[in-house]
């Protein structure tokens, strides 16, 4: 999973049936872990109700897809947690 900040939300009336009723958020990761993307953001489905500006933990890949209940959903990222506080010691 990775840490990121919610920078926006996406609305779409025409979308894949599997995404019906799902909230889609734009997340800008603080640090990537594979797979790395060329763009600086990713779109994640949100079941927790995260708001813009909040820091979140994003789950990537198949586990994110299964969060909607199957492997046929066109999803590669899901919000796993909304961060209250982080502490880093280097």
């Amino acid at each position: 999973m990775i840490l990121g900040r919610v920078t926006g939300e996406v609305w779409a009336s025409r979308k894949h049936g599997g995404l019906d009723g799902q909230k889609l958020l734009i997340v800008k990761p603080h640090a990537w872990y594979a797979p790395t993307h060329d763009v600086g953001h990713l779109i994640a489905v949100d079941s927790l109700g995260a708001g813009i500006g909040e820091e979140v933990v994003v789950c990537l890949g198949a586990p994110a897809r299964w969060s909607l209940g199957g492997k046929t959903f066109p999803v590669e990222a899901a919000i796993a947690a909304i961060v209250d506080h982080t502490e880093i010691k280097k």
């Binding site: 840490l3 079941s47 927790l48 109700g49 933990v57 789950c59 969060s67 899901a78 919000i79 796993a80 947690a81 909304i82 961060v83 209250d84 506080h85 982080t86 502490e87 880093i88 010691k89 280097k90």
Partner: peptide, 11 residues
């Protein structure tokens, strides 16, 4: 381990 994350709202 370089740090910890606290989150009350989780899946």
């Amino acid at each position: 381990i370089i740090g910890e994350v606290w989150a009350a709202r989780k899946v």
